[in-house]
Amino acid sequence: MEMFAFSEAAGVEDAIRAGAESGTAQQGARVRFVAGGTTLLDLMKLDVERPLAVVDINGLPLDTVTKLTDGRLKIGALVRNSDLAYHPDVRSNYAVLSQALLSGASAQLRNMATTGGNLLQRTRCMYFRNRALPCNKREPGSGCSAIEGENRSLAILGTSAHCIATNPSDMNVALTALGAVIQIEGTAGKREVPIEAFFFEPGDTPERENVLDPGDLVTSVTLPPPPQNCSQVYLKLRDRASYEFALASAAIVASVDNGTFSYIRVALGGVASKPWRSLEAEEQLYDQPVDEASFRRAADAALAGARPQSRNGFKIELAKRCIVHALGVATAS
């Protein structure tokens, strides 16, 4: 790890000013904010992240969960994953988020990791994490080692010829199913970005993962008012019983009226370059009867565009079973 300048941000504006000094807010940033540290220190030790300045934002007043008057829930960027998972409002009204958070990492990491940090969690692709090997995301133009390498855990949806990295977050999948909106403050003021527009597919610029520009600070995430009469399920499939990233996961928010789906959101994790909302699955389900045949049509539709690699073709079937089973659990009476 190279020497860096360490400072503590006294306020949001202070942090923005420091962050604006960076040439990019994406891979290769010269200035990094540190909150929980669980991604940043990990990658700094691997020399994958090499900031010249690290700005500690833990002192900023962004660590509360607030019920807004219009019914939305505002989650400060510094709210820890464990606090969010066990927050009474989240447990009762946004169960899919609580389940997703508790399925991720370990208790220690959840005590450290923040909402903003989890949102910006980086891929677990083993080639991205090994500085000695080519990786387009880490070193644009160097080539993707994963496409012809060990890609069992990597993405089958939203990939490109340049990158097949998976977004590893469980939280992001639940936030996508819930229709979260990201609040950002930057040099040009405040703005809001729906989570589906927040992340980019890799295309030919895999080093650029999201909308953030230098100086941009994620300050909060808001959830729409609790979906009414909906059941919520997060199902995560993996090799190990715990403490592992998803091979495939599904977040379901569903409402059933008279035996058919009246509201449905399907998001997938562990299989895509970004938290993956499946409009195709949702279209297959609206107004359809709640039965396994509908679930299967939805699952087929969700994976229709999948592009398997040499070792991860099984994820197509795995993701389908994940969707079907999660829908079954969500609609079990």
Partner: peptide
């Protein structure tokens, strides 16, 4: 390539 305890998995307590 999986030279770490997240990618080379050993059994956890839950396993």
């Amino acid at each position: 390539i999986n030279n770490n305890l997240a990618d080379y998995m050993v059994a956890t307590n839950a396993d």
